[in-house]
């Protein structure tokens, strides 16, 4: 397959390997040492590291700056960009800025509503939606133009992805919605955390039936549970999250000091099962504030060592 960008993720995926990405959240501080440390903890076990963009609408050090910090350390960041906080001028400006630092991959998202975060009284922007941001990146890269029509002297050369949540409603449009994101320009997909494997496989069946798995690289989202409390919280309070009752029962069935270990085992089992699922081309491991466990998950899942890419 033709390699279009310098994205390591693109090279791994198009090289036919099962890709592994992870995710780090920037600090609520001007001190970036924490995220640099997180990056180094996992760098040998993943192909790239997503940097979240003010996730859950809580103000943090910006994704672009955090990506630059990782890039300066020789790591491979994926810039997450939400359309909640910036209009098309700022988005395009940041895309150019990212490309100027050699940030080669980005993930286009709508972003959680600001009512969830630390500034619920903020205005939201949503000048574009996530699909239109995908279109924008592809237009800038492939046509070498700004949305306004002017030529970009040196277009940003970025591998572009989107999120997909097979567990949100209405389920009947979740496959068409993926098709729509592909039509908008998505080259890779990182899904919402997969706990309900049956439902995920049902969604993937629909994806494969339409041949969409041949048009986009789908990476299944994996988040290990640290405790039964976390599982119950995610089931109850996180919109669009599907945590089956059996998983909660399984975690409840082990002693409190063994629940984290059980959570890791569940994550490893999920990866092993989904490796066999047609169309799954990688895993996006989101160990929320538990990054130190990413290497263990990757090793236990047989995804280590990672391929060497020039």
């Amino acid at each position: 397959m033709e390699i279009k960008t310098n994205s390591k993720l693109e090279k791994v995926l198009k090289g036919g390997h099962i890709a592994v990405s992870s995710e780090c959240g920037p600090p609520r501080s001007s001190d970036a040492s924490g995220i640099i440390k997180k990056g180094h903890l996992i760098k040998n076990h993943v192909d790239c590291i997503n940097i979240t963009d003010n996730q859950t609408s809580v103000t943090r050090l910006c994704s672009l700056a955090a990506c630059i910090h990782l890039k300066n350390e020789g790591l491979e960041p994926v810039l997450q960009m939400v359309v909640r906080d910036r209009n098309r001028i700022a988005l395009q400006s940041d895309i150019l800025g990212a490309a100027s630092f050699g940030i080669n991959s980005m993930l286009c998202l709508s972003g959680d509503h600001q009512s969830f975060g630390d500034h619920p009284k903020a205005q939201n922007v949503f000048d574009l939606d996530s699909m239109q941001l995908l279109q924008t990146v592809r237009y800038m890269r492939d046509e070498g133009k700004f949305l306004g029509g002017d030529t970009i002297k040196e277009p940003p050369n970025i591998f572009v992805g989107a999120a997909a949540n097979p567990f949100a409603d209405p389920f009947k449009i979740r496959v068409p919605r993926l098709a729509k994101k592909i039509a908008a320009g998505a080259e890779f997909i990182q899904t919402q955390c997969v706990y309900n494997l049956d439902k995920f496989e049902l969604w993937m069946k629909g994806v494969v039936e339409r041949g969409l798995h041949e048009k986009v690289f789908i990476m299944a989202g994996i988040t290990p549970m640290r405790s039964v409390g976390m599982a119950k919280y995610m089931a109850r309070a996180v919109p669009g999250m599907d945590v089956p009752e059996e998983l909660i029962k399984r975690l409840s069935g082990v002693a409190k000091d063994k629940q984290a270990e059980e959570g890791l085992t569940i994550a490893v089992e999920a990866i092993e099962r989904l490796k066999e699922c047609t169309g799954v081309r990688g895993f996006h491991i989101m160990a929320i504030e538990w990054e130190e466990k990413v290497p263990e998950i990757v090793e236990r899942s047989g995804l280590y060592p990672r391929p060497k890419i020039d």
Partner: peptide
Amino acid sequence: CKRLFNGPCGGSSNGKCEI
């Protein structure tokens, strides 16, 4: 609540908005 022209977002649940 996000005035999406290509919705719904991943927060749609049982016909209700994430907020």
